[in-house]
Design a binder for these strands. Structure first.
Lengths: 176, 176, 176, 176
DNA sequence: AATGAATGAGCCTTCATTCAT
DNA sequence: AATGAATGAAGGCTCATTCAT
């Protein structure tokens, strides 16, 4: 039954992602369980409380983001940046931040946020050194800006914001 | 007594704006009333229910936005666009959209949204005709994009997103 | 409406006392509210949560007990002791201790318990000095014993335990 | 396998006794199973539901009490009474009564209660005939009183209540 | 008209019990 | 036969809304 349990856990996560993305953070535990085809009790067996579920979604999302950042570390910085922006826009769980709100982060989440910060910071620094990323914004500002893009609910990969953001971030030669 | 009533109504709206901006959409009616220095009963005398209050905030915000758009109709399109982006980023109530969510809009709101759409559409068309706004995006895409920027909670006028968005929207000459 | 609110509060306390005494500590908030002829919301307006209600019952009971002890301070110690035992057996709320269980006590409750302890201690000491109370038990033991009698649910003033307890506590002359 | 089953059953009963004594009647079936080193399923194989488990504890306790009473039937009544009081105070499961509450008793329990009642009644009658037990209380009152002492949770053999009760029950010669 | 107490539907969570493995 | 995952009824609590004063 280990296999069943794992499938159920995944169904719950999937249902939660979908419902949160579609209807916002107000979705009830009952609705999530129902969407996963399970009873509430099962949901609570997998996640001790609502916060634990949200934390789990946040941690999964941040882990995937960190891994994506790591996987492009050796590519030209602009390519890595473009990949990142596209990747984020494609995430249905851009809303993680909006879900967790001001709640205290778990240790895992805190660590992941730190790792992502470092990776982003390095990426930005390299891109600016190579003059492909505009230099009048601090790494922190750009990171925050990317974060905004990441957290925007309903973002899609083919979103015009992707293009506009990238064009806005790219170094503008004099006269352009 | 009319004056008193008006003052109370304004206090409520102000309190609601402030609390929603600071603590998100989860603020309770009781909290809003208290922040306005009134009892809940008085709040309900002015707004039949929560949706009515939120609608009112939305309508006020949209009205101000429409008026801003109207007021820059005769200026060069790029200036008008820059003004618009800056204005929206400066609005503490960018969150109106997040408050109303998927709820059906009132007649007033529907009308206002339509008016804003037309004004935006015209502005975009003019800017593209003058080649100051990139032309590979449809007016609708740009409107949506602006809407995203408009609705982002916590936006401020000095936000780097403002600059980046504007640079991203501006026409890019060949070689830039 | 202050008067109504007070009456309601009293109704709640009365209903809670009755139900706890009759059906034990498992009674639900809904049942208490219903027995008081009120909705749950009203119960929660008066007591922020279950623990607060139980604490209130405990504090009332302890206050009454302390006042009773104070009121007999100037009477002969054996009379005071007999009054105390009879009083406790007559209390429907002997169950306070069983309700509060191991939960952390409020400041008021802690203070009251301390006051009652001191009063009991003095009473016992005087009674032993006058040789009307058996001396082979420490004041603490006797206090604990009285506490047991106090906390026994369902005790009544005409309970045989009252007589037996008093006779057991009284000094036994040699040969008796 | 019969041996295994018996051991498991005993483990469950032991765990339940310990947990109920230590943490009160609120202990969950899961906790009991875990303390017994078993899964809930196994617990439910031995006891169809919670009430059955509690009933079993009650029946065991009452059986032991009845056997104790039987075993002292031929000793002097006061000795038998003293033994009884001491025995009850030493029982960690004095709480059986608090566990069963007002729930309807099983046939076994009803029968046992009857047997204990008869034994107690006889004992009291003999002791009163011999003038070692105060005669101003009916057998029923004394039985009830003992029951109170029996059912008090947390009682210990060296409890001062034991001494006081016994002294209170003993016949008081004139002048004592 | 203003107030805030009362109401109750609905959410989160627990736990006795059932059932698939 | 043992296990522990799944279930769902029930309890504590919140908050939008109504209503008596």
């Amino acid at each position: 039954m280990r296999a069943d349990a794992r499938r159920n856990r995944e169904r719950i996560v999937g249902a939660a992602l979908g419902l949160f993305a579609e209807h916002g953070s107000g979705v009830s535990m009952e609705e999530i369980a129902q969407a996963a085809g399970l009873g509430v009790g099962t949901l609570y067996r997998h996640f001790p409380d609502r916060r634990a579920l949200v934390e789990d979604l946040a941690v999964s999302t941040l882990t995937a983001l960190r891994d994506r950042l790591r996987s492009t570390r050796d590519r030209p910085p602009w390519d890595a940046l473009a990949d990142l922006v596209g990747y984020c826009a494609g995430q249905p769980l851009a809303l993680v931040t909006s879900l967790t709100g001001a709640a205290p982060a778990s240790e895992s989440r805190t660590r992941l946020v730190g790792e992502v910060d470092v990776l982003l910071h390095d990426l930005v620094e390299q891109a600016q050194k190579q003059r492909v990323l505009r230099g009048d914004l601090s790494p922190e500002q750009i990171a925050g800006l990317l974060n905004v893009a990441i957290c925007r609910p309903g973002a899609r990969a083919d979103d015009p914001l992707t293009t506009v953001l990238l064009d806005g971030l790219r170094t503008h030669r004099p006269g352009a």
